[in-house]
Structures are given as C-alpha cells and as structure tokens.
C-alpha cells in the first residue's frame, strides 16, 4: 500500500507492508523521504502495549519524514499487527526484530546509515541492536527505560495503583506478584501479560551497560511534566557525557493538562532539528 503525502517541508511517501523476521511476518510502515544521502530513522517501540507511545511513533515518523528523513516504524513479534505469541518472546528476539527491521528499512529506503529512536523499553532494545548493525550513526532515547527489572516492578506497582484508584483493595503486593510470576510463569499487568520467560531474559538488562561501547551522538528526550531532567535521566546524561559523547537533552512536557505522549510533534521536530545539526 503506497500513498503520496505532502506535509510540512518535503514530499514523502508512505508504504505499509509486512516484512520477515525469523520466519514471522512483522508489520512495518515506511515513510520514504527524498533527501539525498540522509540516514533512515528507525523507531524501536516499547515492550507490550502502550497505545499512546505507539501513536506517538506513528505521528513522529511523519514529522521526521516531512523534514526530509525517511523513517520506519514497526511492530515487534507479538506486538501490534505482527505475528507471534507474547508467551514465546525473549529479549533476544526483540533485538533480532530490531536488527531485521532496520536492515529491511535500510534496503528499502536506499539509505546507508541508520539513526535509532528507542521509545521507553525500546531504548534497551535499540541500545543492543545498534551494536550489531554497522552504519548506526546516532541514537535518540525517548523517555528511556534505564533498567528492565525496575521497569517490570514499576509495571506491577501500576497494577496496585490502578486497583486502588478503582476503590479496590489490591489482592497482591508487588512482592506477591513477583512470587506468582516465578511460580506460575505469568502475571497479568495493565494491558499485557508478563511471562517469566521474558522477565528472566531481560531482568539484568541495563541501558548504561548496553551503551558501554557506544560513542555516537545521543539525544535524551524526557516525556515528563518536570521542568528539569529527572534524577535518573540526569545520571544517564552525565554518564554519557563522561564517556566523551555528544549528548543533547530535550524536555517534552506537552501542553498543560495533557499527557506529553499525546503531542509528540514538537519533540519529533526537535529530533529532526538535531539530525540536521549532525549532518
């Protein structure tokens, strides 16, 4: 499916189709721009389902394409419109999908270089994929998850908060949820099931460890209401700077009263501007 669009500054076309990753069809959308020699921007979406983050990627890819950079958004295995069962997914599989997606997108767009945008948990995936694919030249981390274990525990805490917000007494504490995951191999979180296979495969993954060999330019985009970098993001920023990297920080607070994920256009534009500066 190919359509022609004119948005913002430059012409771009859009192509939606399935591509293969490890014998399984994954859904991807290519926004093909026409700036000669430009890298392709590959969006690595988060784990499981957060619809607003997925929509933010879809909108941002259009903004970036209008800025002259081809952009590619895909659904990992067992996510969105792709094939696969979440029960079978391990962290390594998400990295394989990211590498296959970027390779496919690069071939299809004709670009030679790749810029990664890792969204939330996708930052951990991108940080691993970037090491496996020569030609990766820059990395944008959008509200990055800094450690997988902490992310899982926060997801469990969200269940407790949700139940309390519904006026219910949470039947399980976070510790009890962890025990159930260990014992039964699966727990239900908000909007997705967490399987022990995935938990075990990712538990030890830390962003700073994964980025140890990375020396390319990096953008940290914080999607929070705060007017300064959070303690965790500041630590990430300082550590990368200490490694001698070029690091840019951007605060995306969104309009008053709305979730920053609802309005990704501004941060997408800033990401495009950052790419212009790198060129």
């Amino acid at each position: 499916m190919l359509s022609r669009r004119l948005t913002g500054k430059q012409k771009w076309s859009e192509e939606r189709r399935y591509f293969d990753s490890e014998g399984r069809p994954l859904y991807g959308v290519m926004h093909r721009a026409e700036r000669p020699g430009a890298p392709i921007v590959v969006f690595c979406s988060s784990f499981a389902e957060n619809h607003w983050e997925a929509r933010a990627a879809a909108i941002s890819a259009q903004v970036i394409a209008a800025g002259g950079y081809s952009a590619f958004v895909y659904d990992s295995r067992a996510h969105g419109d792709s094939a696969g069962d979440l029960e079978d997914v391990a962290f390594e599989g998400l990295i394989e999908d990211a590498v296959n997606a970027a390779s496919y997108a690069r071939n299809r767009s004709g670009a030679s270089q790749i810029v990664w945008v890792g969204i939330r948990f996708g930052a951990l995936v991108a940080a691993h994929a970037i090491r496996r694919l020569p030609g990766s030249i820059a990395l944008a981390l959008w509200e990055p998850v800094l450690g997988a274990r902490d992310y899982f525990l926060k997801s469990m805490r969200h269940v407790v908060y949700y139940q309390m917000s519904q006026g219910e007494r949470p039947p399980l504490t976070v510790a009890q949820m962890s025990e159930r995951l260990e014992r039964e191999g699966k727990i239900a979180l908000l909007g997705f099931d967490l399987y022990r296979k995935f938990f075990d495969s990712a538990e030890q993954v830390e962003l700073l460890d994964a980025l140890q060999p990375w020396r390319g330019p990096t953008l940290i985009a914080q999607f929070q209401k705060h007017s300064r970098l959070s303690r965790e993001n500041n630590q990430l920023h300082e550590t990368l700077l200490g490694r001698g990297q070029s690091v840019r920080a951007a605060l995306h607070r969104g309009p008053d009263g709305s979730d920053p994920w609802w309005t990704p256009e501004i941060i997408a534009q800033q990401t495009g501007d950052w790419l212009d500066e790198l060129a």
Partner: peptide, 20 residues
Amino acid sequence: NWRETPATLGRARAEQPLMF
C-alpha cells in the same frame, strides 16, 4: 486458547494493510 496456530499464522501472512 489464544495461541497462534498454523492457520492463524497463515492469515497473518495474508493480511493487507490499507488506508481509506
């Protein structure tokens, strides 16, 4: 049982993205 089967994987392979 929500697990993917050969039949449902076959349907995934046949899917057609569209816009209207």
